[in-house]
Design a protein around this nucleic acid. Sequence first.
DNA 1: GATGAATGAGTGTTCATTCAT
DNA 2: CATGAATGAACACTCATTCAT
Lengths: 216, 216, 216, 216
Amino acid sequence: MSSEVFSSVDDTELVERRRQQVVAAATELYGQNGFHKTTVKEIAQLAGVSAGLIYSYVKSKEDVLFLVLQSVLESYAREIPKALEDVTDPVQRFCAAVRAYCKVVGARPDATLLAYRETKSLGAEQQAAIKQMELKTNQLLTRCIEDAIAAGYFRKINVELAAYRIVLLAHGWALKAWRFRQFTSLAEYTEEGLDLFLNAMLTPKGWAHCRGEKEQ
Amino acid sequence: MSSEVFSSVDDTELVERRRQQVVAAATELYGQNGFHKTTVKEIAQLAGVSAGLIYSYVKSKEDVLFLVLQSVLESYAREIPKALEDVTDPVQRFCAAVRAYCKVVGARPDATLLAYRETKSLGAEQQAAIKQMELKTNQLLTRCIEDAIAAGYFRKINVELAAYRIVLLAHGWALKAWRFRQFTSLAEYTEEGLDLFLNAMLTPKGWAHCRGEKEQ
Amino acid sequence: MSSEVFSSVDDTELVERRRQQVVAAATELYGQNGFHKTTVKEIAQLAGVSAGLIYSYVKSKEDVLFLVLQSVLESYAREIPKALEDVTDPVQRFCAAVRAYCKVVGARPDATLLAYRETKSLGAEQQAAIKQMELKTNQLLTRCIEDAIAAGYFRKINVELAAYRIVLLAHGWALKAWRFRQFTSLAEYTEEGLDLFLNAMLTPKGWAHCRGEKEQ
Amino acid sequence: MSSEVFSSVDDTELVERRRQQVVAAATELYGQNGFHKTTVKEIAQLAGVSAGLIYSYVKSKEDVLFLVLQSVLESYAREIPKALEDVTDPVQRFCAAVRAYCKVVGARPDATLLAYRETKSLGAEQQAAIKQMELKTNQLLTRCIEDAIAAGYFRKINVELAAYRIVLLAHGWALKAWRFRQFTSLAEYTEEGLDLFLNAMLTPKGWAHCRGEKEQ
DNA sequence: GATGAATGAGTGTTCATTCAT
DNA sequence: CATGAATGAACACTCATTCAT
């Protein structure tokens, strides 16, 4: 994947710091007004730098969008594994992954929306890179599901499809948060969704296992 | 709703015809390149009219987007009731509604995506009008669910949340069609999703009812 | 002068009638919003005809302006001689001319303003034609002045310059009517202006003559 | 007056310089072809800058017109007081004011014409601001006349009306310069006009005073 | 490294004018 | 003669990007 964003500045640490400033500003503005309505000058102003400076750290306005979306996807890739760190039981790992995913999405629903809304504004290559990152996130879920199947706790279902249903569960909150917030909480939404899926996925052995867990 | 799009031409039939031309062209282009990257001239060219003519039937480029999204939402509001016309059994009606929704979305996944991507590009008023139409579509689903609950076939769940899960099922196909198409079909996707939800919603009485239906 | 406006319609009487409709509408609109801000469609609408029809009686939007200005200038050329018809005394003729000029201007100050504001919007040829008409109007005044000089009533002054001062007296009302109306009337304005000029122009013989007139 | 024109550039001196460039170019072009027929690109080209740059110093094409008219009116407000600086005698001050006014108008007759022709092309607020400036110029004249009346040199006439006659004298040169230049000079035009007004305004005491001045 | 003035290509929109009906 | 839908050239204005300082 050739999707490294070019910078004319060498000092890696400075590049990082500047980009963070810019990405933070851009995320807010893109979320509010969309990619196209947001001008580079607005981003620069909110980031507290000059418009010209941005082009020392990024080759185009599109690159900024790429960095923004990258940072969103990275937060997924960071948070889910973190939530799984100390969990060993396959079913518990699955549940933890789902909860973690929903939680990251819930923390910045606008960011997730942004990914849906603006990915197409990127060039083909960067679009592909973003999709690649999404697939990697999904693999975190597929692996959990596969493990639970291997352990005999989940039925032998289409793993990738199941993973996508989870993704849609999590993203669904972001997509419809404006309405959901009016009659439910993220936690409730997540647990009910989780129930739904467990219901459909657990084998009798899986059920027994779960009950055992709870009885402990 | 004050969201009628203004036309300087009076002949209703002509207005309808021209708008259809323009909306068809715009849907394709907006879907391909997004609202902002698409120029009015491109739309005009694809629609086979002059750029100026568009402004006889629409007051702004934004109006064209509104018309496009409106036509998408209208197709939902048209197709779902049609699918329910001759179905009386509450559970069957629910299933028919879900299948119909998934089918309309599947017929023009780009159009559904467009609604997600570009609704924010509209002015506040038109945005509200679109959301209103979406709510109306959802009510087609809530009514089905309520009826099934009233008949004792579905458990007493949060109706609106359930409806939204269905919406996300249907829209999910559009959102991830690029991937889904690689390993499943819309029908399979729909039926499996339906199963999932029925599993979670049916009461014992509902289950018995279903089995009876099939045995007939 | 090749400044005849072309019409594709032959029936002279109809041409006249239609043009009057259009000119009336255009005068109002040009006066209100200026030539450039006024659209042909607006003129057509106010005139109660279709936009296309105008082009049967006129070759361009500019032609309409020309007709409008022509009608203004013609009203000068018509009213001043009428006011002189039964007056034979040179000084009286001069006074009658001045009063008549001020009166026509006062009747449609907007129209006079229009001539100042929009003559430059015409093509060179039509601009020249309008100036020509203005010169003709001025000659009505110069002739009066010359006659009064010949009769020994006026001093031997620069006749054309004097005529222009009168023109500016009359036009001045239109140019500053928005202010003048607040503290004087057209009649007062006219008489005081006339006094001013007579003062400067009358010979002793002229003065005696005037006094004699009044004593009669 | 809320009629300050906005600039996105802060450096006051640069703003001043650029605006002067633009105003100079615009004055010429507006004078030649009128406000509406002149394109922003033409102005930019003549000013030797890019079209886009203009919008760093001005918010709209209309603002350029405002700046142009403002500069005309300012030249009046600057030159007339300057001409009065070392003159103390009321009648002399009046004469100096009239001569100064005619001279500024004569220096850029096109600019004065522009004010007549294009003030209506401004928005309501800027139109009002221009009229306000015109009133201020007029007050320079009224004050002279009032002083001469107070000193017993001028008769007790309607001061504002008299001031406007002077204004029309000065503007008259601009309005009809195309003709006047063919048979007289600005100086002659001015002096004769001044005579005319003095004739009508001076009291016997004023006459005596004048003669005295000359005899000195 | 940082600034922000300058560029100029690109776009939505208007409107005089034409012409099929 | 009359209509008004259709055309398309023209124009104000925006904004990503560059580069001299």
